[in-house]
């Protein structure tokens, strides 16, 4: 046979290595931070703020904000994104995208504070602001992922007698998964970073370290907070990349 098959050794080797490097760097930074906290010459206020049980509690709050927001984002935007690619609703996609765009373009700090006056200074207010902020990447990537599936494949599916729903579930969505996942990862990282601002309305999280550091002029607390938020964001990004790596449909 002249037309020889192309057996591609996927570039997964390099992705695998970069995943390991990312995790190692995060763990290393965390270890360095732990050693510094244990050995540095800290004042009693600093020590009280940076004790491990307090840090764990802030991190827990931060993660709760992040995951609750993301889950709400996914349950709203993925079905919405799918709907907006179906023929009867395509016309609405411009409007909806504009609204989602507004959510992201508005400064999150303003959004959080304004919403707080309306909805109260609570955890759920922060969640609402974060959802508004993170909806766009997931919505847009869901739509792009589905729209970029080769129209020929959709037609092949219909031509074989698959129903429109079956083509969506078995062809369009699986093929859109990589693009959708990268949108979800972007949203996650955005939310982890922005959840820092929840502290302004008393909704907790690692942002508390930063505000404390600023208010009491304790640079070590301020830097610790910033570092922990950054490491958490990198770790969440790492988790997302691992998931993307394994959830990507084979054969792509």
């Amino acid at each position: 046979m002249i037309d020889t098959p192309r057996r591609e050794v996927a570039a997964s080797g390099t992705t695998g290595r970069s995943l390991i490097i990312q995790l190692a760097a995060i763990l290393l930074a965390l270890a360095a931070f732990a050693i510094w906290v244990a050995t540095a010459n800290l004042s009693s206020t600093e020590r009280a703020t940076l004790n491990s049980s307090a840090l764990l509690a802030y991190t827990g709050e931060h993660l709760a904000l992040t995951f609750v927001s993301i889950i709400i984002v996914l349950t709203i935007t993925i079905p919405l994104g799918i709907l907006l690619t179906r023929r009867p609703f395509v016309r609405a996609s411009g409007t909806i995208l504009a609204i989602a765009n507004f959510g992201q373009a508005a400064p999150i700090i303003g959004l959080v504070v304004l919403l707080a006056f309306w909805l109260g200074f609570t955890f759920w207010t922060a969640v609402v602001a974060l959802v508004a902020y993170a909806a766009l990447p997931v919505l847009r990537n869901t739509m792009i992922g589905i729209q970029s599936v080769d129209a020929q494949l959709v037609e092949a599916g219909r031509g074989m007698g698959m129903s429109a729903t079956s083509v969506l579930l078995r062809v369009e969505l699986p093929l859109a998964v990589p693009v959708m996942l990268s949108g979800i990862r972007t949203a996650l990282v955005l939310v982890v970073g922005s959840a820092t601002l929840a502290t302004f309305i008393g909704a907790g999280g690692l942002g508390l370290l930063i505000t404390t550091g600023v208010n009491l002029f304790l640079p070590s607390v301020l830097v610790s907070g910033a570092l922990l938020v950054a490491l958490l964001a990198l770790f969440i990004d790492w988790l997302g990349r691992v998931f993307e790596h394994y959830a990507r449909p084979k054969g792509l």
Partner: peptide, 15 residues
């Protein structure tokens, strides 16, 4: 389902 359908480049599902 009762009619075979072949399109350009085969139209195979890559996944």
């Amino acid at each position: 389902r009762r009619m075979g359908y072949v399109i350009q480049a085969g139209g195979l599902f890559p996944h």
